[in-house]
Amino acid sequence: MTESKAVHERKHVWRNEFLLIISLVVFVGVVYVLDGALKPVFTASTLLLTGVFLALVPAAIWLVFFYMQDRHEPEPKGYVLGVFALGALFAAAIGVPLIENVFRVSHWIYTNTLSTILGGILVVGFTQEFLKYAAVRYSVYPSSEFDEPTDGVIYATAAGLGYATVLNIQFVVSNGGVDLGTGIIRMAVVALAQASFSGITGYFLGRAKFESEQVWWMPLGITLAAIFNGLFNWLRSNLSQTNVSLSGASANPWTGLVLAAIVAFATTGAVLWLIRRNLNSVQAGK
């Protein structure tokens, strides 16, 4: 495979990433408007089932785009789904129990700004980013199907969306369902954030496989992704903070979605630029 092919024929990968962001924001808007207009009434079980269904939507949107557009240089669908499932499995079996039950982050992480940032990076960030990295590194990474740097972004995004799906299902189940309006916003935020930070790890994974990077290269990638993860959560918790007044309490979940969309656009754009720059320099070198 030539570098130019990698640059031009894989444009759909980036199109998928940007379409995922736009579609999720549009989907959230549609559900929010419908919820407000129709005011549907749910029983406990239908509320739970609706919540679980909505938790699957972000991953479904990305996979649909991926299947539709990945025709010229297709990744094996089984591999993509496998990495998605592995990301979900790692989240359910290791990530969520470690963060919620062992570290019990909800008990102390919001004590003050420093604990939100440090806990978000050291515990939540590193756990999540390492597990998403592991889902790619110990499955498709050594195979011949991982045959260009952009594959790192594709598979890491799949792992990230698998992880996000489990986080969202866990949120729905632990709350016995979710309010449709605010629930769908939260799910989109989680999916966008997890996919974005995975993109960073994916970029580092892609370069680690095809270029002789230093031993610190991959740890740097995980650390950067964990730092962005922690800072994002801190910023989101600050922006979406509940306002308490005499008339009651209110939170603004939309600010979280706007932030997640901006972060997702910026991260995807930055990774795209880095990969292109890298491929151009490889071409120039030859």
Binding site: F126, Y133, R137, E213, V215, M218, P219, I222, T223
Partner: peptide, 8 residues
């Protein structure tokens, strides 16, 4: 690199 990632 893999060991370094686990270590960090």
């Amino acid at each position: 690199a893999e060991i370094a990632v686990i270590l960090i």
